[in-house]
Design a protein around this nucleic acid. Sequence first.
DNA 1: ATCGCAGATGCAACTTTTTGCAGGTGCGGT
DNA 2: ACCGCACCTGCAAAAAGTTGCATCTGCGAT
Lengths: 140, 140
Amino acid sequence: MEQIGPEHLARRLRDIGQRVTPQRLAILGALRPGEHLSADEVFAAVESSLPGVNRSTVYRTLEMLRDLSLVSETDLGGGARQYERIEGRHHHLICQGCGRQQELEDALVAPLRSTIFERYGFAAGIEHLAIFGLCGECAR
Amino acid sequence: MEQIGPEHLARRLRDIGQRVTPQRLAILGALRPGEHLSADEVFAAVESSLPGVNRSTVYRTLEMLRDLSLVSETDLGGGARQYERIEGRHHHLICQGCGRQQELEDALVAPLRSTIFERYGFAAGIEHLAIFGLCGECAR
DNA sequence: ATCGCAGATGCAACTTTTTGCAGGTGCGGT
DNA sequence: ACCGCACCTGCAAAAAGTTGCATCTGCGAT
Ligand SMILES: [Zn+2]
Ligand SMILES: [Zn+2]
Ligand SMILES: [Zn+2]
Ligand SMILES: [Zn+2]
C-alpha cells in the first residue's frame, strides 16, 4: 500500500500548479483510497489536526480536488455526497431494494469510455460511478 | 409527441399503486421529456397552478417519481439537481473545459447495462447519466 | 354514501452545500 | 530576505435539500 507523507501531497499539488496550504494538506491527507467520507467527516478529521478550518474551505478544496481528478465526488444515495481519493478507478452497484452495495471493476466500464471517445471525440472521466438498480435477489 | 392529460397521469400513478393527489398531478404535469428542471423550477411551476404547495412535498414527490423510474434526477454540475420525465433513455456528455453539453444516445450505454447484468445479475437502471470529461477541442 | 386508516401533506427546524466579500498568505520575482 | 499580488481562507448569509411530527385525505371496505 502506498505510503503518502505531507511532502508527497505537497509535490502533487505543486505539480499541477496549485498552491500548497496547511488546509489542503490536511484535507488531502484525510482522504484515503477505498474509503468513502462525507464532507462533514473530512471536516471533522481535519478539525482535529488543524483547529479553526472552515467548512467552506473543506467544500471548496474537495471541489478543486474533484476537478483535478484527485478525488471522486459521488452521491451514493445516503443523504450526503461521498468523497474518496482516486487511486485506480472503481465503481459501485447499489441495490434500491435491499441497499446492498457491490464494487464494480472499471474493466466493465472502460469499453463505454472508449466508445464515447471513438464516437464523439469526448474524453470521459467516469472515475467513480454509482449505478443504481436491483440485485438478483431483489429483482423478482 | 405524446399528449398527456391529467387522466393519463392519474392512471399512471394508480397503476403503480400510488395515490393520486392534486400535488402529484401538478408536479408530474410540470415535467416534460427533453426538459431539465430544478426542484425549485418545478416548485414555481406547481405553485402557480396550485397555490400553497410546500417545497418538501415537491422534493418528496420527485424522490418518489425517481424511485419509480418515472423521472430522472441528475447532477449536471449546475448547482442544483435536474429533474426530467423519462420517455426513452438518454444521457449527457458535459465538457469541464468549455461547459458545452452533448446528448448521448442510450445505444452506447446499453452494452454496459447488459454486461453488468451478465456478470453480476444486477439490473442496472442507468436512466440518465451525466458524464463529465473534455470535448475534442478542450482536450488539447 | 359513509367510515377508517395508511399514507400524503404542511409546517418548522435542521442539515448540507454554495456564494460574496474582506482580510490573510504562498510563492515568483527582485 | 523582501515585496506584491493573485489566489486562499474565514466568516456570515443564502440556497438547496432533509426530517419529525401533527393534521388531513384518497380510497378500499362496509
Ligand atoms: Zn468507491
Ligand atoms: Zn437487493
Ligand atoms: Zn436529459
Ligand atoms: Zn470543451
